[in-house]
Write a protein that binds this DNA or RNA. Structure first.
Length: 741
DNA sequence: CTAGGGTTAG
């Protein structure tokens, strides 16, 4: 025993062990017992355990007040150890209310807030103590953290019938809980029924609205504070600024900034960071810079916000400089950079930064990092790196949350490995709406429409409510598989059965379904009857359908509407030009070409990529910059010869008429980027059981499609080709799209 | 005899 410990003989006679034991469960209080006073000064767990031992020895532990003091230190002090606190708690013969509350409170801010709920249930079963106003706020907070809506509703019901029904802390916790569960109506009802709302009530409600996307409501509430003479504080302003940032309302944001200064709102680091964030998100990097330079105190969030600000205006160099200049690059700063690259069409830069992070060993990738990296892999079709990240997650025992699961499913689907995606899907027990939707999207892009619809039924059996994303994916599944009837039926059910109001993107899917199947008039009728104004995506879908079915009249109408909305849409010109070419209207083709030249528009160049041993190789049309270019072209010659003897005739009508030099049309056909990538795949992969995986940025043309089918047969190789919209799985001379794309 | 709520980055 350490010498710092008091010994039994040190105890004053009136609290000598014999007298303590005799007094257990009596009315005697031990608040000033020397051992308990030691507890307050206790500064490490070792010492805590010594005191615990002493308490056991002299019988003091049997006193429920004394035990609760021990629990308090074990569960809530700065030396707290929750697992130890739980063990101590389990030894208490009759824990008092304070002990229950301390443990429950500790769990509510732990890594596993769900344990709060089990402790609460245990407390009810135990029956010795009833929850009070110090119990409810923490249980409600835990329910909010894990979005346990039903449990929280139950708590609300208990609260109403209890003496805590009017407690401000409890009611504020309920406002926060309902808002967190996206039940803004319920949150607002509780808020309105609070008789003596304080600043926390207002702040909880404002923050709740912002969080749930009800930005206008949050600002209305802020304006309403004045009428009730409630003075906003710094926390209020953080919420209001967050609303401005979401709205991208720079003007109001500037007003809020001046409001803060005029009303002498207490300055704080968090508040300054929120102002910075508002300026960064609203794209006013100058205002952000000014404030950033003025700030006396900065933390990594301030620096990271500046990184975000620069990436918002596209200045990645400046973002990099800030990143290098910040005193400590934590994982959040790395994530800001990586996600900015990933979300702005720079997946290669995202992965390069990810690998820099791993080499630097300055910070550990967390689940946000991995989500961004996986998404970059999905964009590039980098399955080797994507699988490596999957292994990394398993090795590091990183818990698969729904976000990560969704990213893994998405990555495997977009890299062409539907089996792996399904494996991940089945490996987890809890699936939220995004996990289900990602799997449906996986089936959709691989042309498995029936499977997607089946999965949707299973999703309903699992009682997971579909959202707008789910329906987009479902409808696109119907479109890629030509399931016209199913698609129309699903669309009709959206609002009446599932309460999801069809948005422009859903109409675009429906037009796509009808148009592809050749029901152009019906598609036009859908557009005419749309309650919202059709966006570019709707006209684009119609235009693409016209190209497929060679309808010039409707195509012109669709194209005009599309160009009115998006004058720089090069795809629209190319599509219309192809439709003219297909029907022999060469004068219109050249007129269109001149128009395009005159406006300085250029067709987005076709680009295909293939990953070999973890390295991504990219090919543009007619590209000869690859080190193995000579070998690739001789392989292409060989392929062309074999195809010719197999009777293949190039389909020149599909050549994009907008290539600059007209006499190289047929040659251009042979130099399409996907052909180069496939040829490179043929010479670079030794294991012929492995499919050749090629990713293309545009839609695959008819000639390349026919060629890929033949190669799969003549060379007995599986080819997976991802184009802008879906996968083509070539095997034995056939394609999984059944030539319907 | 003890005690508490709302806020910023990715």
């Amino acid at each position: 025993m350490a010498s710092s410990c008091i010994s039994i003989s040190d105890l004053p006679p009136e609290i000598h062990p014999s007298s303590v034991t005799a007094n257990v469960n009596s009315d005697r209080y031990f608040a000033n017992h020397p051992l308990l006073l030691q507890l307050d000064k206790c500064s490490d767990v070792r010492r805590l355990k010594e005191i615990h031992a002493q308490m056991l020895r002299i019988g003091l532990f049997n006193d429920s007040y004394a035990a609760s003091k021990l629990i308090q230190v074990a569960a809530l002090s700065d030396i707290s150890s929750l697992s130890y606190a739980q063990k101590v708690f389990d030894q208490i013969p009759q824990p008092n209310l304070y002990s229950w509350n301390a443990l429950i409170r500790s769990y509510s801010s732990s890594e596993e807030p769900v344990n709060t709920l089990s402790m609460f249930v245990r407390m009810l079963y135990d029956g010795a103590e009833l929850p009070n106003k110090f119990t409810y706020p923490f249980v409600i907070k835990a329910a909010a953290l894990i979005s346990a809506l039903r449990f929280g509703r139950g708590l609300h019901a208990m609260v109403v019938k209890s003496e805590s029904a009017t407690d401000l802390f409890v009611l504020n916790a309920l406002v926060h809980f309902y808002a967190e569960c996206k039940c803004l109506d319920a949150a607002y009802q509780v808020f309105l029924n609070i008789p003596n709302r304080d600043i926390v009530s207002w702040n909880s409600m404002i923050m709740g609205f912002v969080h749930g996307g009800y930005v206008e409501e949050s600002l209305d509430l802020f304006r309403g504070m004045e009428g009730e003479s409630m003075k906003p504080n710094d926390v209020t302003m953080v919420g209001v600024l967050s609303a401005c940032a979401k709205k991208l309302d720079l003007e109001f944001g500037r007003f809020v900034h001046s409001y803060i200064r005029r009303h002498g709102i207490k300055e704080s680091l968090i508040l300054n960071n929120a102002i910075l964030d508002m300026y960064a998100k609203c794209g006013s990097i100058k205002d952000a810079e000014t404030l950033f330079d003025e700030m006396k105190e900065k933390d990594t969030i301030s620096w990271t916000t500046m990184i975000v600000g620069y990436t918002r205006v596209g200045d990645f160099d400046a973002a990099r400089s800030v990143f290098s200049a910040m005193p400590c690059q934590d994982i959040g700063a790395w994530n800001a950079l990586i996600s900015a690259y990933e979300q702005n069409g720079k997946p290669k830069e995202a992965l390069a930064t990810f690998s820099e992070l791993q080499q630097s060993k300055e910070a550990e990738p967390d689940s946000v990092t991995l989500v961004c990296a996986l998404s970059a892999c999905a964009q590039l079709g980098a399955i080797d790196l994507g699988s490596w990240i999957h292994v990394y997650i398993k090795k590091r025992h990183i818990k698969l949350n729904c976000h990560l699961t969704t990213s893994l499913i998405d990555m495997y689907s977009k890299c062409g490995d539907l089996e792996k995606a399904l494996e991940v899907f089945h490996s987890i027990e809890y699936r939220d709406v995004f996990v289900w939707s990602a799997m449906i999207a996986g089936f959709a892009m691989h042309g498995c429409g029936k499977e997607a619809i089946e999965l949707f039924s299973k999703m309903q059996e699992a009682k997971v409510n579909p959202n707008s994303v789910t329906f987009t994916n479902l409808l696109s599944a119907c479109s890629h598989s030509g399931l016209v009837g199913d698609g129309k039926a699903i669309f009709k059910q959206m609002e009446p059965v599932f309460g999801v109001v069809p948005e422009v993107k859903h109409y675009a899917c429906l037009v796509d379904i009808l148009g592809r199947a050749g029901n152009l008039e019906e598609a036009v009728a859908v557009i005419d009857k749309m309650p919202v104004s059709p966006g570019a995506s709707v006209w684009g879908a119609l235009l693409a359908a016209c190209k497929l079915h060679g309808n010039v009249a409707i195509a012109e109408q669709a194209c005009n509407n599309l160009l009115e909305l998006e004058p720089d849409n090069d795809g629209a010109y190319v599509l219309l030009s192809n439709i003219y070419a297909k029907s022999g209207k060469w004068d219109k083709v050249s007129a269109l070409r001149n128009l395009m030249r005159g406006s300085g528009l250029k067709k987005e160049p076709g680009c295909s990529s293939i990953e070999i041993d973890g390295v991504i190789h990219e090919f543009l049309v007619g590209d000869n910059s690859h080190p193995q270019s000579v070998k690739i072209y001789s392989k292409l010659d060989e392929v062309a010869a074999r195809l010719k003897s197999a009777g293949h005739v190039p389909k020149t009508s599909q050549v994009l008429q907008l290539v600059e030099e007209e006499d190289v049309q047929e040659q251009a056909l042979n130099l399409h980027s996907e052909k180069l990538a496939i040829a490179f795949g043929l010479i670079s992969t030794t294991n012929s059981a492995q499919p050749i995986r090629v990713m293309k940025n545009l839609r695959v043309c008819h000639d390349c499609h026919a060629v890929a089918k033949l190669i799969s047969k003549l060379y007995d190789r599986e080819i997976l080709l991802r184009d802008r919209y879906r996968f083509h799985h070539f095997k034995g001379g056939h394609c999984s799209c059944k030539d319907y794309w």
